[in-house]
Design a protein around this nucleic acid. Structure first.
Lengths: 340, 340
DNA sequence: AAACTCTATGAAAACGCTTTCATTTATGCT
DNA sequence: AGCATAAATGAAAGCGTTTTCATAGAGTTT
């Protein structure tokens, strides 16, 4: 079967090409009966409009970009799933691209040749000024997922890190823990700072002292977590709970605890953050905070699409979603002092 | 700055539009000097050809599709990275799409409106006859990654599961293990069958008996692995090593072993398969087989692009890559009988 | 040196839509 | 009833490329 074009549909429906186009784009000023006729013809011929022609003629592109540094982060699959679903619903498609420091060329082409409807930025590239500038210059709508910093003229979707971290700390305290260690994330990320701030504030609020020996700075990787955990746990005086700023580092703590013969959670409670896949693959499973990344990406796509109709200023309003506290097996009551 | 078109370039270079197009597409029959002039003009104007116009005019599309069922599998991020890199190098872009059983509509549109240069199919959707038929009907080049079954008229890239599994088993045997358990993957997948076959063959070759009590069938998920591990390890007579058909199920075995107070690897050696992220996040880290998924995806893209030039029949030749045996901490010599 | 075959180039016709512009037909208001 | 305005429609002009077609010049072969 040869390609079916809009002309075929027009002929079959007994209207002009323009009318068919109008129906396809859901414009007003089309009589209901003609609209029906067109729709019927479309269905009968199984007509699929050519995306390239549509893009070339009009100014939409039906493509949304998703840009990331490194696709290995566990949350990315969730994010991407959300974005794909939302695109699918709207008849759009998701083009993914890797940001390489060394391949500035690639992303230029990505932005210049594709004339994307909008771009979604995953962390940590969502905070890369180079990328943000490139987008700003081209005037492409941008939605940033879980950004660390603010950036003029972009939309953002995230959670309240401070609040979520506070919940974790308060939970540990409610279990009777008073000797609590903390492993900080990459200090370049605002979220790491917020989580840390929540920790110190909550401790202070409960009049608990923070032992500097039990506070270490990692960079969100498993390896960095190992060092932090060793540093904290090789102390003769050990905390009874550790707040790791993400799940990977929490996994490191479990690994080291095992190695040191420290039982988790009986001797040591551990909380993570993010609820990545490891959180349930590891033993014991992690008490952590679940970020609705899939939802975030869905919303990101929707915001870009909404922009088409109502190019409101509200697009730029940062959006904060609720995170979810997930209680699993890595936490329990503080061991009773001097017991056993 | 207003959009720069091919006409601008032509004017600047003092040639016709056709010539510019020829240079852009690297066609022959263009004098070196003119070609230089064009290239220079392109650089000077920072001209980026409009992808939609190119696609509409010609028959290429500069887009390659990547289709998967479920983006949560750990290997997907690697795969996608490989595909993105290869696309970037070639000036192509990667469009990702989720295959939903319930959203047949979505993939139809994916295939019909985008006129993709080719489609890469990740497992397990690479074995979905519905999808394969849809692609065949549209005559779109298909490359399948790690497929289970053969399918006429598609290219495929995979590893030799039998060989890789044999290496694992032989390694365990070489460590002195003779009591080896096996957790099979989803029996619907050919790779699960091949890995199992390698196990039985290797055992037989070394005159070792296979204890049916120690052989369980899972479905590649962590949960299914838990049940299998419990089944095997609650036996009074326990194996000293277990071959889990993938890393997730190997992780389950470690979890259960911990719970049962069985030391890994001192009392029980464990091997996995795939070398997903968990393999190194878990403690002890897993001895396993690394599949070069990233490489596979790169090759997949390249094969699709090659097809443009030399539309050879060799495209359909299945491609088998070398896998890599990765020795980590989850395996050690078999415990000496009656020792301690 | 006539008759061919390549090589090189530009003009103009597609490609399949959207959008502007002009025109006709309906509706609302005095 | 008459005029202004809004609704509905089609013809035709883009959109920015690629590709076909036509043509001219440069080598080759007889």
């Amino acid at each position: 079967m040869s390609k079916i074009t809009i002309t075929d549909v027009a002929r079959k429906a007994g209207v002009s090409v323009s009318t068919v186009s109008r129906v396809l784009n859901d414009e007003k000023y089309v009589k209901a009966e003609k609209k029906d006729a067109v729709l019927q013809a479309v269905a009968a011929l199984n007509y699929k409009p050519n995306l390239y022609a549509r893009s070339l003629g009009g100014e939409k592109s039906f493509l949304i970009g998703l840009l990331f540094d490194d696709p290995s982060g566990g949350y990315l699959s969730d994010m991407q799933r959300g974005a794909m679903k939302a695109c699918q619903r709207a008849g759009y498609h998701l083009v993914v691209e890797l940001f390489n420091q060394d391949n500035k060329e690639g992303i230029d082409r990505f932005l210049d040749t594709l004339s994307l409807q909008g771009v979604i930025l995953a962390p940590p590239v969502c905070d890369n000024p180079q990328v943000l500038d490139a987008l700003a210059k081209r005037n492409i709508p941008v939605v940033r997922i879980s950004p660390s910093e603010d950036y003029e003229g972009t939309a953002s979707i995230g959670i309240d890190n401070y609040k979520a971290a506070s919940i974790l700390v308060n939970y540990l305290i409610s279990l009777g823990h008073s000797k609590i260690g903390f492993i900080k994330g990459d200090p370049d990320h605002a979220d790491a700072i917020e989580r840390h701030q929540a920790f110190t504030d909550s401790m202070k609020k409960h009049s608990l002292t923070i032992n500097p020996e039990w506070t270490r700075v990692g960079n969100y990787t498993f390896e960095s977590g190992l060092n932090c955990a060793i540093g904290i746990l090789s102390n003769p005086d050990r905390p009874t709970a550790i707040f790791a700023s993400n799940d990977e580092m929490a996994a490191s703590v479990i690994t080291i605890a095992n190695k040191f013969g420290i039982r988790v959670p009986e001797d040591l409670s551990i909380v993570g953050f993010d609820d990545l896949a490891i959180a349930t693959l590891i033993s014991p499973s992690l008490t952590t905070i679940h970020q609705p990344v899939e939802k975030m990406a869905e919303l990101a796509v929707e915001r870009i699409l909404d922009l088409r109709n109502s190019d409101d200023e509200e697009f730029y309003e940062p959006q904060i979603l609720e995170s979810e506290f997930v209680m699993r097996r890595s936490t329990t009551n503080a061991p009773v002092i001097g017991s056993k």
